[in-house]
Nucleic acid binder design. Structure first.
Length: 754
DNA sequence: AAAGCGACTTAGGAGGACCTTA
DNA sequence: TAAGGTCCTCCTAAGTCGCTTT
């Protein structure tokens, strides 16, 4: 990568790793619930039968399907301009699904025996205009109908209780549940909600009160009721919770799976989105609007011609039945807030999703054979006489170097966010000679703020794009939009688009970072380094998360803990000096830090410890008595507590004395200098650990690692890392990710490179 | 060529599950 | 044994990009 001055920090200790035994929950192979084909009066049933049986004996047939072209010829990349290529050309032309992973008898590891699934990656097909031959599924799961609130829970208007019709009450309830949240406090949200609420109210027949102003609505009774319910739910005994959970699982069982070409595959979001208030991100003009309930009549199902049509809910009909095998969705409906389409799709671990994921990464890998030419070209095109070309070159530069998104045009009724092509005058600040400050809201209204040095010509160009009469509000790249850019990219490589650069640069960065990690230390330490590499990628892609509520406090707590450990350490050293006065002369360095602890700090720590001790005693006393009460024993007398507290008082006195003299009492009588040294050493270790932990926590507080791990880093990189470094894959991929990336886990060998 | 649409990937947050710690 | 934190999954919004329509 060229001039990335933004130094990216490496190596951090990360918090504890998830335990080895990732949830081995059962969920695995449940027999595809019998298709209930009875209903559907239409033809179909026969073939549905055949499909089903196909799946049954597929067990035999699956394994390695004959696979017509196990050697997909894949396009031969044009080696054109760029052979020399940056470092890693060691790698043969990107191509080819790994052929039969040689894999010996499968290590015992692999979770569960698990009737194996279709290994599509051993059997690649090139053409994906048709996504399936046969497709059978059970439709979608609807949310439960609305249950009216008990009659004592009401909305109040201007102090008066309101009798709302159920439909309106439901909407009021949507809002009531959110009053205390950021959304609930957002005026736009309130306004949009209120409009829609009034509309539903009038649609459903109105009520006994003339509701006019949002401000006069009092949702607190409803809110409290919901809180109460939440509390109740929390307190349901464990066995009951378990039962409920089981019941839920049973209910969703039929929807979870479908048959794709006769093979069982998981469905992703088989639940229809429940009604609610639209929670737009950032300053979304429509946030708070009512997202209406979706009915079977709104839903279009997509399945095989011969598949049984799942019966619609009692008394309803499906909106439409389609048999379009050029798409991979199972059902769709149109949502009313943005008028956009919602799809029910396959799960991430499905073959279809897996294949396109695989293709995505292969496409990104292919870019490495062209990137050099592309960079060379845009460098020179930065000075092109044609404005359009300069803009293209400059935009490409930004996309390549700073991993910006393409940045399509957005409409008035969406949040004002931008990407590369839609950057405006006010989003960049230039300061000579070549510093650019980016400050804009990107996808999801996440702020992109970076102060960077850019190529000289880029700086000039940006200045040019800002030149009068351009003014705030005007687009920097006024000749450009993503489709123009993407069309140019096609010239270098078929299928190359702006987003491929992000994938490429992310995975490339990961590869480079992993290459720097030495193969040493414990697995846990290696995982820390892996995460550090992951973090550089996340930073590159600007994947952020909001800092957790308690973050500040958590940091403070750790800092205090470190301080206390330091104090304790110094205390031990002081004890040593009492045992052997000459030590200080013998090892001046060792005792230097005695000076580091200020009187104030020491006193403060004393105070904290004493307070904590007192608190502890109080709590213990209360707890013990609580227990006794339950057991019907007689309570401990107050004097017991007094006694305990007296001990603390003594400790306090001791500390006071110690603070004055600077000579802590050498505690256990048989203490020796050696023992103290050992203690000090232990503390030092702990301090080092905790400090690392603190740093990690701080560095990580605003960075989301997950997004890049899931979408940008070629999973084969992680797999190779684990293999080479003897790190269990469970430390890197959760169960879900292992399922999603099964193709990578099973197909790659140690020498694989991105 | 612009606008709109359809289908797909990418994204952060909510909330529950799970683990650690007192 | 509860409380507190972290991790994981689910949820659904918000992008990208190709294609169709005007």
């Amino acid at each position: 990568m060229s001039d990335s001055e933004d130094d990216i920090v490496l190596a951090r200790r990360t918090k504890k790793q998830p335990s080895l035994a990732a949830n081995e929950s059962d969920e695995d192979d449940v027999p595809l619930s019998q298709l209930k084909k009875e209903s559907s009066p239409d033809d179909t049933s026969i073939s549905s039968n055949s499909q089903k049986s196909a799946s049954k004996n597929s067990k035999a047939s699956k394994r390695k399907t004959p696979s017509t072209s196990s050697q997909p010829k894949k396009r031969v990349k044009k080696e054109v301009k760029d052979e020399e290529e940056d470092d890693d050309d060691d790698d043969k032309p990107a191509k080819a699904p790994a052929k039969k992973p040689v894999k010996k008898e499968e290590t015992p590891n692999s979770d569960e025996p698990e009737e194996e699934t279709y290994k599509w990656w051993e059997d690649q097909k090139d053409d994906d205009t048709f996504k399936w031959d046969t497709l059978e599924h059970h439709g979608v799961m609807f949310p439960p109908p609305y249950e009216p609130l008990p009659s004592h829970v009401k909305l109040y208007y201007d102090g008066k209780p309101v009798d709302l019709p159920p439909d309106a009450e439901e909407v009021a309830g949507f809002y009531a549940a959110l009053v205390e949240t950021d959304h609930g406090k957002n005026p736009v949200f309130q306004k949009n909600f209120f409009n829609d609420f009034l509309q539903v109210l009038s649609e459903s027949g109105g009520c006994n009160v003339d509701i006019k102003e949002f401000e006069k609505c009092d949702f607190s009774k409803m809110y409290n009721y919901f809180e109460l319910k939440k509390e109740e739910k929390k307190n349901v005994p464990a066995f009951e919770k378990k039962r409920i959970k089981l019941e839920k699982e049973k209910e969703e069982e039929p929807y979870k799976f479908c048959l794709l070409n006769g093979r069982k595959e998981q469905v992703g979001n088989f639940r229809v989105e429940p009604p609610g208030l639209f929670r737009g991100r950032g300053a979304h003009p429509r946030t708070g609007k009512l997202k209406r309930r979706v009915h079977p009549e709104d839903i279009i199902l997509n399945l095989g011609e011969n598949a049984a049509v799942p019966p619609p809910p009692e008394g309803h009909n499906w909106g439409e039945i389609k048999h379009d095998n050029t798409v991979s969705w199972l059902a769709m409906w149109r949502e009313n807030v943005l008028n956009s389409v919602k799809y029910v799709r396959f799960a991430a671990n499905s073959s279809l999703k897996g294949m396109s994921d695989y293709k995505k990464f292969e496409k990104a890998r292919e870019l490495k054979y062209h990137i050099e030419a592309i960079r060379k070209d845009y460098q020179s095109m930065l000075r092109d006489k044609l404005m359009l070309n300069r803009q293209i070159a400059t935009a490409t530069y930004l996309i390549d170097i700073f991993a910006l998104r393409a940045g399509g045009e957005k409409s008035e009724d969406e949040a004002d966010t931008v990407g590369c092509c839609s950057l405006r005058y006010e989003h960049i600040t230039l300061s000579p000679p070549n510093t650019v400050v980016f400050d804009f809201l990107g996808k999801d209204s996440i702020r992109f703020y970076q102060e960077v040095q850019v190529d000289h010509q880029v700086f000039k160009n940006l200045k040019l794009f800002k030149k009068a009469p351009k003014k705030p509000g005007d687009e920097l790249f006024d000749r450009l939009d993503p489709s123009i850019l993407n069309k140019r990219f096609q010239n270098y490589m078929p299928g190359l688009t702006a987003k491929v650069f992000r994938t490429y640069n992310a995975s490339k960065t990961m590869q480079d970072q992993l290459d720097l990690i030495p193969n040493e230390g414990t697995p846990a330490e290696k995982v820390v380094k892996f995460n550090a590499a992951n973090r550089t990628v996340a930073i590159l892609c600007n994947h952020q998360r909001s800092v957790a509520k308690g973050h500040e406090a958590a940091i403070q707590k750790i800092t205090d803990r470190i301080k206390e450990m330091l104090w304790q350490k110094i205390r031990f050293k002081r004890m040593m000096l009492q045992l052997d006065k000459n030590l200080k002369k013998k090892k001046p360095k060792y005792f230097e830090e005695l000076e580091d602890l200020t009187k104030e700090d020491e006193l403060e720590i004393h105070k904290v410890i004493i307070e904590r001790e007192r608190d502890k005693q109080h709590k213990k006393f209360a707890r013990d008595n609580e227990k006794r009460k339950e057991d019907g024993e007689k309570l401990l007398p107050e004097s017991e507590l007094k006694e305990a507290l007296k001990k603390v008082d003594e400790l306090e006195k001791e500390y006071a004395k110690e603070a004055k003299s600077g000579k802590p009492e050498v505690k256990p009588a048989n203490t020796t200098v050696e023992k103290l040294e050992a203690q000090v050493e232990k503390l030092e270790q702990r301090i080092a650990n905790t400090t690392l932990q603190l740093k990690d926590k701080e560095d990580n507080s605003e960075v989301a690692l997950g997004t890049s791990k899931i979408n940008y880093i070629d999973p084969r990189l992680s797999v190779v890392f684990c293999k080479k470094f003897d790190v269990p894959i469970e430390k890197i991929f959760t169960k879900t990710l292992r399922d999603k990336f099964k193709w990578a886990i099973e197909s790659v060998d140690e020498d694989w490179r991105f």
